[in-house]
């Protein structure tokens, strides 16, 4: 057998290896080292964390390749980076840099309001955001090898992450419970390919790993979302916008591993200092909500 590079199995397989772990947003090599030392399974290399992107306004784009390279050189764990929705050239650049995963992300300003990136064309795997099962399956159909529920990035408010995790779960329960002859109609309602709906019906879960993102700020938030059945956690602004990032990073990692053990959660939650300041979702105008980006 010849060597086959970049098969869907090795793309989705890396996400399987990240399960039960925490992926942290970092903007400098120093932060990347702190994240690795805290036990992160991967880092997301960015120019600004979502809370700062939200504060700065304007158009948010792929990070400077120099920053991404410096972060890749600083740590041995996988490095992810974000491309704008539909911006396949940013994705080509990230692939050329050798990042380990590309996040086609609503945190950045979309480059295309109609079409997401054709992710199956790349050797590097993609993770994409979703608020419900239909959106998740559309992204998988385009080649995404990992899903993360969107939440509302940069808010430090877990409510949207909970909403999206519960929505995906309830959509899956409906697909699993439905008799086979109703799956076609459900696929139409979800706006998702019937083959993937059938796969969910058989597996009882998404066909790829599903993490949670967007608003996780405390160890308890991480454990809450893990108990709702997601496979792992992205923490964006929650670590490096807090008072003591290393301590909080360590605590979120331990809470994600021992998410079912309240004694461990109590211990790791103690004495972490201030969490990031949160934002009430109703105070964000609908047009400013990042989760509405993509379809």
């Amino acid at each position: 057998m010849e060597r086959e590079v970049g098969t869907f199995r090795v793309k989705a397989g890396l996400a399987e290896m990240l399960k039960g772990g925490v992926i942290m947003d970092v903007t400098t090599p120093e932060q990347a080292v702190i994240a690795e030392r805290a036990g992160a399974v991967a880092v997301m290399a960015l120019e600004r964390v979502p809370a700062d992107i939200r504060a700065a306004g304007g158009v948010a784009r792929m990070a400077d390749p120099r920053i991404i390279r410096e972060i890749m050189d600083a740590v041995t764990i996988p490095v992810m980076a974000k491309a704008r929705i539909g911006h396949f050239v940013e994705a080509q650049i990230l692939e050329a840099l050798g990042v380990d995963y590309i996040d086609e992300s609503e945190v950045l300003t979309p480059a295309d309001e109609q079409y997401h990136i054709d992710k199956s064309k790349f050797k590097v795997p993609f993770v994409c955001g979703a608020r419900n099962l239909g959106e998740a399956l559309r992204r998988i159909a385009e080649g995404a090898a990992m899903i993360r529920t969107k939440g509302e990035p940069g808010t430090g408010n877990v409510v949207e992450a909970v909403r999206h995790a519960r929505t995906v779960n309830s959509d899956i329960r409906r697909v699993v419970a439905a008799p086979e002859d109703e799956l076609g109609t459900i696929a139409k309602e979800l706006g998702a390919p019937i083959e993937l709906v059938r796969e969910v019906h058989e597996l009882g879960r998404l066909p790829v790993v599903n993490f949670s993102a967007g608003g996780i700020a405390t160890p308890a938030d991480a454990a809450l979302i893990m108990q709702l059945g997601v496979d792992g956690i992205f923490v964006g602004s929650g670590i490096f916008k807090s008072q003591d990032p290393e301590a909080r990073g360590r605590a979120v990692v331990r809470a994600t591993t021992h998410f079912e053990d309240p004694a461990v959660l109590a211990e790791v939650s103690a004495g972490l200092g201030e969490a990031m300041p949160g934002i009430e979702i109703s105070k964000i105008a609908p047009a400013e909500r990042m989760q509405e980006r993509g379809w």
Binding site: R3, E4, T7, R9, V10, G13, P78, V99, D100
Partner: peptide, 26 residues
């Protein structure tokens, strides 16, 4: 890195029959 992750048959494995299919991820 991940870009180079691959699948390939493994020679000399301690099992009878077809070679093992190795899935190598980073």
């Amino acid at each position: 890195r991940q870009r180079e992750s691959f699948e390939e048959a493994i020679g000399g494995a301690p099992v009878a029959g077809e070679p093992l299919r190795g899935v190598f991820i980073r």
